[in-house]
Simulated assay, not measured.
Amino acid sequence: MKRNRGVAVLALALCSALALTACGGTTKDSAGAQQNQQGGSATADPNAKLRTGLKVTYLPKQINNPYFTVVRNGVQQASGEIQADFKATGPSDASASSQVTYINTAAQQRQDALVLAANDQNAVAPALKAARAQGMKVVTLDSDVAADARDVFVNQVDSSEIAVKQVELLSQAVGGSGEFAILSATANATNQNTWIGVMKQELAKPRYSGLKLVEIAYGNDDDQVSFQKTQALLQAHPNLKGIVSPTTVGLAAAGRYLSSSEYKGKVALTGLGTPNQMRAYVKDDTVKAFALWEPAKLGYLATFAAAALVSGQITGAEGQGFTAGTLGKYTIGKSGEVVLGPPTVFTKDNVDKFDF
């Protein structure tokens, strides 16, 4: 991929929204794509070269979450390939408003792009809108925000596809019938709620008439809270046959509890997890199968989308395309969404083939 060797011309603008004082710069690349100073929008030029020296901030839901550490690796790799200045920051908890300060700081530091996994689609929206008004491009991944608060959303998989897959794995694990519970992340997590909504629709189909959802619990993407919620679910529902956890923290915590409890082999567990976290539980038969995408690729793709936005190659409009390094070409879909690809199902047969 060619890189723009020109020196970008930065222009400062005064802004006051949410006490943000520094504004992102405007550039005109070698192909002539000019950014709009007021809204940060641009006229797309697919032939524009990627700018070098971009300043990219990665803001995960939690800085100490193993899953988001893997995503960070992808962001960092892509940043290196496009010669961007990369930094990672974020809260230690996944509360709704915990990311606002970090968004404000990124804008004040004149970051060109923010790659964000949102804890809440609405709580962070005002800060993101103010930052975008100053020129910073916003790419969300994993969990989206309101569409008018970001430029592009990089979805790990098609939401319906991953939700349907989890119901399928659960049904297989419990033999097609019985009570089960969902152990989710936070009550306001956009992706979790989207998947759960699709799962409920799928459960209404005749082939899943034997399955009964008895409770949705929230572990707040905290290992110890998720561990305790698993215990509480088992105590509250003596006929429970399965748990599905659409969050890596919850799945690992539930696996740890079940593996050393009287419920091992009696209560099935599936959901979304990383091979490295779940390997031991697969090998000791606590978990038969679980699913996920490759998180590093998610961060990698989002970073190239951010670079394409800053460089004027895309604006986030449906139908626009860009090249994401070694992943190849991607096209923006409805509402500014880009989909990474289908999920992978991990079992005892293939879990050792993956290292993340």
Results as ranks from 00 to 15, higher is better:
1 M>T: 13
2 K>L: 14
3 R>T: 14
3 R>F: 15
4 N>F: 11
5 R>Q: 15
5 R>G: 15
8 A>S: 10
16 S>H: 08
18 L>S: 07
20 L>K: 11
20 L>A: 11
21 T>R: 13
21 T>Y: 09
22 A>R: 15
22 A>P: 10
24 G>I: 00
26 T>E: 10
28 K>S: 09
29 D>M: 04
30 S>R: 13
31 A>E: 14
31 A>G: 12
31 A>D: 11
36 N>F: 02
37 Q>N: 13
37 Q>L: 10
39 G>S: 14
40 G>R: 11
46 P>K: 15
47 N>G: 13
50 L>M: 06
57 T>C: 09
58 Y>R: 07
62 Q>P: 10
65 N>P: 13
73 N>T: 10
75 V>R: 00
77 Q>V: 10
85 D>L: 08
86 F>H: 07
88 A>S: 15
89 T>M: 13
92 S>V: 10
93 D>G: 07
96 A>M: 14
104 N>T: 11
107 A>H: 08
108 Q>I: 02
109 Q>L: 05
111 Q>P: 05
114 L>A: 00
126 P>K: 03
129 K>D: 06
132 R>S: 14
133 A>F: 03
135 G>N: 04
135 G>F: 03
136 M>N: 09
140 T>R: 11
149 A>Q: 08
159 S>V: 07
165 K>P: 12
166 Q>V: 06
169 L>S: 04
170 L>H: 05
170 L>R: 06
170 L>M: 08
171 S>I: 06
180 F>T: 13
181 A>C: 04
185 A>Y: 09
188 N>Q: 07
200 K>N: 09
209 S>H: 09
209 S>A: 14
211 L>W: 03
216 I>K: 12
217 A>H: 01
219 G>R: 03
223 D>C: 02
224 Q>M: 03
225 V>H: 04
226 S>I: 06
233 L>H: 00
234 L>T: 01
244 V>A: 00
245 S>Y: 03
246 P>V: 01
250 G>D: 02
252 A>Y: 10
254 A>I: 02
259 S>Q: 13
260 S>D: 14
266 K>G: 08
267 V>N: 06
269 L>M: 11
274 T>I: 13
275 P>Y: 03
277 Q>G: 14
282 V>S: 02
282 V>K: 03
286 T>H: 05
288 K>H: 08
289 A>L: 10
298 L>F: 05
301 L>C: 01
307 A>W: 01
308 A>Y: 04
308 A>P: 06
310 V>D: 04
312 G>K: 03
312 G>E: 02
317 A>I: 12
321 G>A: 15
324 A>I: 11
324 A>P: 12
325 G>H: 04
326 T>F: 04
326 T>N: 12
329 K>W: 12
329 K>M: 13
329 K>D: 15
330 Y>T: 10
332 I>H: 10
334 K>W: 00
337 E>W: 02
338 V>M: 12
338 V>Y: 09
343 P>V: 08
344 T>V: 15
347 T>Y: 13
349 D>V: 06
350 N>F: 00
352 D>S: 12
354 F>M: 03
354 F>D: 04
355 D>Y: 07
356 F>N: 09
356 F>V: 06
